[in-house]
Nucleic acid binder design. Structure first.
Lengths: 228, 228
DNA sequence: TCGAGTCGAATTGCATACAATTATAATGCG
DNA sequence: CGCATTATAATTGTATGCAATTCGACTCGA
């Protein structure tokens, strides 16, 4: 692995974590100095981040971390609703027993964390959930579909719909994982795709509810500041 | 526009034209010398080509032009059948009169070329066809969907399904363009999506037929060379 | 006081030189 | 004669220096 690869992952992680907030500039010289590297590998990493849609390159001015509007979030959901059911459909006729077992184990661990209801259980569930979807994608056996989704679904943690779920919605999500396993086990692509679609539409609904809530609060704050 | 941008377009064009055949290596030094540039902008262009899936970067060895297998072609069709109907669906409720007129003009010119049946009419039709689809995409108003498709649909000319159409299939394709215009004019997303789907499935069928033909010919040649 | 123009600082874009790595081919050994 | 090993050449990976461009602040004029 080259230095540029490492820098790429470091910067991406910082964007995801919110360490580099939306709208801020990622300076080649600053990062190079911090990581004790020249600007060259930093530049390469930034160009990759540009093509992956994480930052926007403004000629001769810098690399700006992209801002996510509600419209962007909706656009991503629209694409996921198109593509991810296809992942499930393909996986249904291709997945092997061992992979299916692994998915089941992940589902079980998520359910356990869900029941437990600890403090930062959500974060752990999110990690397992990512693993679940990644393995499903691998089972689908379509490198292009995988690449497309990988460039799309990655979203800053602050935007993860997971964190806006009610207790019921979280339980429903766990149920989807289970049902998807049954559909996969039955080799039923239509069923699998349908479950995945429901899974995503549920997530979208939760996100929309959250966005409306934020919108209202924002309006409230705005009007208050206007009054003040 | 920077030098790296120009290099990117030059190399991509050469890959499309078959000037850089699949499997060959694109050397930084060679292109730099030819274009009288240093390796730096060449490198940037190559990295972009890698993320766009045109070449494969082999660490410390070079950038290799990707080879398209029949499986790759099928994968691309599968994705297009998912995504492009959505383009049509979105466009149906968003397109404006002026854009619609422009599409109609393009469709007319393609039909004229088709009737004319000149020697290299196919090439001209292909250009107009690309324009038609690009404008439709613009009318859909989804930058992400556009980016996704742009990175997917570009395919070396030698692979364009257009060139494998029978006369009837070409006429059918023209008819699809017309029907899509009617659907868009009616603002009917379902209709538009359905027409686009047919359009793509027809293209896929033509490509499959062509592939089978090549396969057979290849087998024949192979057996002949075995005999010889 | 406001606006236009100009100058300067900051940042990226590109060229060049060097280091690291890998494939290849020659060579020595079994 | 075949295989492993090593040396070499070719290529990419990285560092550094300079050029080009842009943005912002300051000055000058109305």
């Amino acid at each position: 692995m080259t230095a540029a690869d490492r820098v790429y992952q470091i910067i991406r992680k910082r964007i995801l974590d919110g360490q580099y907030p939306a709208g801020s500039y990622v300076r080649e010289a600053a990062i190079g100095q911090e990581l004790e590297l020249s600007r060259t590998p930093i530049r390469e990493a930034l160009r990759r981040l540009v093509s992956d849609g994480w930052v926007e390159a403004i000629p001769h001015h810098g690399a700006q971390v992209v801002s996510w509007t509600q419209r962007d979030v909706e656009e991503v959901f629209e694409l996921r609703v198109l593509l991810e059911p296809q992942v499930a459909r393909r996986a249904a006729t291709r997945i092997e027993r061992s992979q299916l077992d692994k998915l089941e184990s992940l589902a079980m661990r998520m359910e356990a964390l869900c029941r437990e209801g600890r403090e930062n259980a959500l974060e752990e569930i999110a990690v397992l959930n990512d693993d679940y979807h990644a393995r499903l994608m691998a089972a689908a056996g379509s490198p292009r579909l995988q690449r497309l989704l990988e460039t799309i679904v990655q979203v800053p943690v602050s935007r993860r719909s997971f964190h806006h779920y009610t207790r019921d919605e979280l339980a429903g999500s766990m149920h989807h994982h289970r049902e998807l396993l049954r559909a996969l086990g039955a080799g039923d692509g239509d069923w699998a795709a349908s479950v995945m679609r429901s899974h995503l539409l549920a997530a979208r609904a939760a996100q929309l509810r959250f966005a409306a809530c934020v919108e209202e609060a924002g309006a409230g704050v705005a009007s208050m500041s206007r009054r003040g």
